[in-house]
Amino acid sequence: MSQLEIKDLHVSIGEKAIVKGFSLTINSGEVHAIMGPNGTGKSTLSKAIAGHPDYTITGGDVLLDGRSILAMQPDERARAGLFLAFQYPSEIPGVTIANFLRAAVQARMAEGEELDATGYYKRLYSKMDLLKIDRKFTSRAVNDGFSGGEKKRCEILQMAMLEPKFALMDETDSGLDIDALRIVAEGVNAMRGGTLGILMITHYQRLLDYIVPDHVHVMWDGRIVKSGDKSLALELEAKGYDWVKQELAKA
């Protein structure tokens, strides 16, 4: 059992405070959805946890299995078991998916340990089949010229290969048509039920029809203002974010 504990986290970009006292604990096997309007700090939260250098953590802590990760570099956090599925994955011309993933897998191996190439490709191909990604993709450059759907499937492929303890999925549904969304959701659902914990950031309820969360949280102005089960997402869908705003005003 693993645990990701976000404690009263404050994050700034430059001088501007974006995340303002965010707290949440995710256990292995749980799927938490964070919903909220644009500009409320959802993406900032995920990138700050992953260690993006543009985001400054000004208060609070993030603990993985009780150990703070804030002093760790982005690559160390990833190797410790965190995975960020990007909203806008970078295009990396000249670096093939096969080489990129091999570098990422090798980075997790002990010094002197040799990668079993046959086993690696076998595993890669089985994950690709699951995500309906053509095997020719392995020789294509990472995200280079990919469609929106291809990029998101490529993110899930990486997640499947790297087997993180916790995945932060940032607007994985954005830019996807319904078929692509279904494929991505199937890929994620196939990883559920084990030890993987997921923090799923989304603007829309639509994704949650396919990846049903255990917990739903509404984020507003940099913190969680409401938590519930999957019915909260449906309620939000029906009433809109203005409802949350009014609730907050009353409080």
Partner: peptide, 30 residues
């Protein structure tokens, strides 16, 4: 070197030095 590309690679657990090398060779690979 594009810092977003560098971060993307590091976010997969690749060390900064190796990420840098991959990006330079990506530049050559064309």
């Amino acid at each position: 070197i594009d810092p977003d590309q560098q971060f993307y690679l590091e976010a997969r657990g690749i060390t900064p030095q190796h990420a840098h090398e991959l990006l330079v060779f990506g530049f050559f690979e064309e």
